[in-house]
Design a protein around this nucleic acid. Structure first.
Lengths: 327, 327
DNA sequence: AAGCCTAATGGTTGCGCTAACAGCAACAGG
DNA sequence: CCTGTTGCTGTTAGCGCAACCATTAGGCTT
């Protein structure tokens, strides 16, 4: 039909016909069927963002940014939540590829995400990684840093005079957690400080996960006097436990963490390395849009630098324990 | 083809053929095209959740719950973010209806959302409202309470001895904000207390929005000694301003709020009325699934009761100002 | 005036799938 | 033997759209 030409406003339609068609569409209440269109055009105008935890502020900030930019480029963004689980992730990938989304931004759950990625690539769906590397995968990626800042933060704790340091990082299968642990250990070794295995803890990336591991950490005979937390949720859990045990922060327990970014105001108490969520999202989307525009060049990498913010929880802004935040 | 029958596992296929087909699918890497299927079946297996702010913990908790339940029912959930804006909302609705999502859960941005809803209904897409009523729309809805709890919270402040009370609510076009203001005023009137117009403030539902209005509230000659905040983000903004002005909470300024639900630990300091986000999400999805199963009965309403949690910010747990949460 | 271009429009086809039906074998009952 | 029944498999059509080709009208060139 000529209707199609009107809808897609091809220029090969006379003004009079166009108007006639438009009036007709109006009166019938015609709405083009994107599904049929997608079937023939092989593009849907939908992008997907798969994150590991949609309740995590950091990811939603990033998502918010990506969504705005995607809308500006004429794409609809859908969010998916993998729950830090490769199986859920794979299922999402299958659904999304069967729905023929045009591209996927993925914060990979673990090493196993490689299969998810390969699945998507086999279907010709461009993938851009967010936040986390996957071993053996050469792909566009936008992320922050983990190794170097972990060293910086650890060094900072050491500069405060601590010699018994612990870390509560995310699950072992999460790339950023591995990197942060690696940086932590490197910093300690460089200073000739011990790295007791029991001071290196992996937790679920939630407040209760952080609390659980903090409890193990602080239960020992000779507990650490300073902790590097893998992110602000873990830090909040650690603070919970400190409160439980009557430990003042930073006097009895110093704390530094990661990932704060426009978070709740409580986090304003944590000394942290702030990952630029929005900038990472924007960079990732740009990579994806370039791919969709036909860019076939090699894998690109955007490693965005964040800022260290020294506040109360390490002792830089004086002793200011949050134990008044009782339930 | 018989292939279709295998994929949809109809029972009219012999075991041998099924296996043969499956082996073939495996070897070719065949994946069914959901788009084509959707085109003929007129269902996509996709549900949408439109919220006004995806960075708001309350909505993501709700979303997380809905997503899990939707997945269990075989549906994929996509999230959309309307930014508290009817236009964005309408655009989403058009895109989603043109993508033929099977149903929509909507937290309506304002009264104008009525048009969004009518648009979707005209296309035969079932809609269930979340959290907020829309005047003149009779539709399934799952929400918490606002009017009654606002009275309770206000009464509680009065019981603490306050006579000059203010409210920082969400934007005037948001239903819950209207209700909370209505309850606030009703409680004051019932006790014979004045309701100065300048003590009733509407703010953007963000921390900075809350701070802005709190500044106006506290700048007056005879400022309120107690504030009811419309949600925890607004409360955080109010706390920021109190800190700015050296006001102790609750001694110099008492604070009660809404919406806390598994939020950041800072919120554990706020006395609040806790809306059951997850339960609301679950109820809404159940309504939607019932509609999809063919339920044609009248509009249903689930009004879920939450709990008042009395903590430090109103003075119930002793004076415990959070001013140590400095930047 | 013949030939040829261009702009505007309509017709046909096929994207990949499934609903509906048609076909066919095997077998039971009359 | 025929008819009916069951159990499986193949065929046809059509979902709504756009790519492609065909057609027409009108204007331009030579």
């Amino acid at each position: 039909m000529t209707v199609s030409r009107v809808v897609n406003n091809s220029r090969l339609v006379s003004a009079s016909t166009r108007e006639r068609v438009e009036r007709a569409m109006e009166s019938v209440g015609y709405i083009p069927n994107s599904i049929a269109r997608s079937l023939v055009q092989k593009r849907t105008g939908v992008l997907a963002l798969l994150v590991s935890d949609i309740t995590h502020t950091w990811f939603t900030q990033l998502g918010h940014e990506v969504e705005g930019a995607a809308a500006a480029a004429g794409y609809l963004l859908v969010f998916g939540n993998t729950d830090e689980n490769e199986l859920t992730e794979r299922e999402y990938a299958e659904k999304l590829s069967s729905l023929h989304v045009d591209g996927v931004l993925l914060a990979p759950a673990s090493r196993e995400s490689r299969e998810t990625i390969e699945l998507l690539q086999r279907r010709g769906i461009p993938v851009v990684l967010i936040d986390r590397e996957v071993e053996g995968v050469e792909l566009d990626i936008a992320r922050g840093e983990s190794y170097t800042p972990a060293i910086e933060l650890t060094d900072h704790l050491i500069a405060h005079g601590h010699t018994r340091l612990g870390i509560v990082a995310g699950p072992d299968h999460v790339w950023t957690a591995q990197e942060r642990v690696r940086g932590f250990k490197a910093a300690l070794r460089r200073r000739g400080l011990p790295v007791p295995r029991r001071f290196v803890r992996h937790a679920q990336l939630t407040r209760s996960g952080g609390a659980e591991e903090a409890r193990k950490l602080l239960a020992s005979e000779d507990p650490p006097s300073a902790i590097l937390a893998g992110n602000s949720y873990l830090a909040a859990g650690i603070v919970d436990v400190a409160r439980e045990r009557g430990l003042r922060i930073p006097e009895d327990l110093a704390l530094v963490t990661f990932d704060d970014s426009e978070g709740p105001s409580e986090w304003a108490f944590y000394s942290c390395y702030e990952q630029p969520a929005r900038a990472i999202g924007a960079a990732a989307l740009r990579f994806l849009l370039d791919r969709l525009a036909g860019d076939r060049s090699g894998a690109r990498r955007a490693v965005l630098r964040g800022d260290v913010r020294l506040r109360s929880s390490c002792g830089c802004l004086g002793a200011a324990p949050p134990q008044d935040h009782r339930q």
